[in-house]
């Protein structure tokens, strides 16, 4: 049984000149799955979540959540989903507990059940001690946790989390990831967006990689890594002439793709790292450039992205 089916969705903001945020995207998420949308800033992840939350109407295509159309049966869809928005959306002038109580009622809870769920969620997000404080006085990590907690109140069958760990300390991030796994183990289908390759890698059963509104690859991690073939990623730092070096190496035999990072960093995907490295050292010497750092990395999702787009995931 499919929890989410997306069929040829397209969304352009401010047509005809605005950005095409989602461009002819199709995918399916099975019930009980954790599916991650991985992509850099502006890839279209939030737009996709908005369409699946019935907040935005697609220009073309259709999506079904729990078998209900997002355009024709939004009320049905909204009964099934819990949404953790990317931007923290809580009321700062209410306390943590008041926030949960208010949102719980908006989700249709009430009475004893509401009270019980508020207590449980406070426990889950670790805000029991601070429940009587105004949210305006919370740290940003605490606000993020509350932001997540709100979406859990009504125990949704399908949970969307849009970059829930941005700007959060490692400890809180750990606990959020663990919580997501627990919820999933209890049967919740999860749609998770992130631009942290590590998170997608740790959590997901399957990953969709988005770039410029398009779904450029989709599959389990093993399947995606296969796309890179036997290639290896090499990260390098040089002390000068980055531009020149990048141009030269782009055309070196054995370099599959290359991207520049910050001021002095280069990532390249090598068909055969062992054969390529001496050539790089030689070329650097010829240009009068010193290589200050060189690491060789195992194939991972980041390399898949580099492989497919020629750019690093985090730019």
């Amino acid at each position: 049984m499919e929890a989410i089916v997306v069929e040829k969705l397209r969304k352009q903001f401010d047509p005809p000149k605005g950005p095409v945020a989602v461009d002819d995207v199709s995918f399916r998420i099975a019930e009980g799955e954790i599916f991650s949308l991985l992509g850099p800033n502006g890839a279209g992840k939030t737009t996709m979540i908005s369409i699946l939350s019935c907040l935005l109407k697609p220009d073309q295509g259709e999506a079904w959540v729990g078998g209900f159309s997002v355009t024709k049966e939004p009320e049905k869809v909204k009964q099934l989903i819990g949404v953790v928005p990317q931007e923290i959306a809580v009321y700062e002038d209410l306390t943590g507990r008041e926030n949960l109580a208010f949102w719980g009622r908006m989700y249709g809870l009430g009475g004893q059940l509401l009270r019980q769920r508020v207590d449980e969620v406070l426990e889950v997000v670790g805000l029991v001690d601070r429940q009587k404080d105004r949210v305006g006085k919370y740290s940003s990590g605490m606000k993020r946790r509350l932001n997540i907690g709100i979406a859990l109140l009504h125990q949704p069958r399908i949970l969307y989390l849009d970059e829930p760990t941005v700007g959060i300390d490692p400890q809180s991030r750990r606990s959020i990831l663990d919580r997501v796994k627990e919820l999933n183990a209890a049967g919740t289908t999860v749609l998770y967006t992130t631009h942290y390759m590590e998170e997608a890698q740790e959590l997901s059963h399957r990953v969709g990689i988005m770039d410029h509104g398009a779904m450029i690859a989709i599959g389990s991690q093993a399947e995606l890594v296969q796309l890179v073939g036997g290639r290896t990623r090499i990260d390098l730092r040089v002390d000068r002439h980055l531009q020149l070096v990048a141009e030269q190496w782009q055309s070196l035999p054995g370099v599959h793709s290359l991207s520049r990072d910050e001021d002095t960093g280069l990532q390249l995907l090598a068909d055969d790292a062992a054969a390529l490295m001496p050539r790089l050292l030689e070329s650097a010497r010829a240009l009068g450039v010193r290589i200050t750092e060189m690491t060789v990395a195992e194939p991972n999702l980041e390399m898949v992205f580099l492989h497919l787009t020629g750019r690093a995931l985090r730019d």
């Binding site: 009964q79 949404v83 959306a89 249709g108």
Partner: peptide, 8 residues
Amino acid sequence: PRLFTTAT
């Protein structure tokens, strides 16, 4: 927008 994602 978040209110609009609830069943209300």
